[in-house]
Amino acid sequence: MAMFAFELGFCFVATVAFAIIFNIPLRLVWWGGFIGVCTWAIYSLMPVLGLSLVFAAAVAAFFASFVSQWFARFMKVPVTTFSLPGIIPLIPGSRAYETMLAFVQERYLYGLEQGVETVLQAIAIAAGLVFAFSVFSIGKGVGQRYETHR
């Protein structure tokens, strides 16, 4: 439990640092850190309940994006200010590294396996973002298929 709190603390530091790398104003940086911590908590607790990492990434990205949209509406600033640091902890850096290492060492099958997992996790993050965005634009109308209102 203490380990987990430790992790969350470092996650906060990392997210705030990334918000500074993206040049986000100092008064908004802390909220990004808060979202990042929540995202990491979801992402690391869901596998404990027996769910897959990819699904956990999707749910965590959905949460990050949803809360960011909400904050952005509340504080009247662009959404990117919050969602960008929010999803930073989800980046599948370790997997990407394993993929490259495997390819460099000519272990192609293992590399493909890791590569597929990396891509899946990236897609899961994108899916989470998209889903939250869709929930927030309900009723505004983006790209319908049939023109039913004539």
């Binding site: 470092f10 990392a14 640092a17 902890p89």
Partner: peptide, 9 residues
């Protein structure tokens, strides 16, 4: 700092 803290995760 971000690199160090992220690496812990």
């Amino acid at each position: 700092i971000g690199g160090g803290a992220f690496s812990y995760l």
